[in-house]
Amino acid sequence: MTVLQIIFLGISVIIVIGALMTVSSPNLVHAALWLILALAGVAAIFVLLEASFLAVVQVAVYIDAISILIVIAVMLTRRAMGETERQINRSWLLAAFAAFMVFSGILSLFSQVPQLANTPSDLVESSEFYIQELGKALVNVDQSIIPFEVASVLLLAAMIGAIFIARPPERAGGDS
């Protein structure tokens, strides 16, 4: 076993522990913190796969933004912080069995695809090269300039929607 494989196994154990604690922790805030641990592990996996840009995205969007949104959503909900309920109900064994069946089904299906069953070849270029290619493709007229600009419109729509939903109440008589 190489050093990278040992690191991979360690990170995988951390991810699985984090994910399990996320779904089994009775306290919502603790669950959110465990989720951050699992997401950080996924970022480390991206680093091992030499996908450094995806690792940056994972840290910046998931660990930063999504986790903060989840924590704040927990804070906004009434009574959710102090509540500690049981995380399992009567049919958890059945649900675990169903999840296991679906997982093994997907796994056996994917292992029959020849491209996925083989060990993937190494990356031809360095990861910097792919980031540069992505940057060029984003503003290239022949490639993805339209999705790139539409993405900004989508972000604008999300921003205005969020402000409209959570708009601070208009002050009476004042021009705020």
Partner: peptide, 13 residues
């Protein structure tokens, strides 16, 4: 807080 968080996410993206 929610509003600030959503704005942060959008500029993060």
């Amino acid at each position: 807080y929610y509003l600030i968080a959503v704005l942060f996410i959008l500029f993060d993206v």
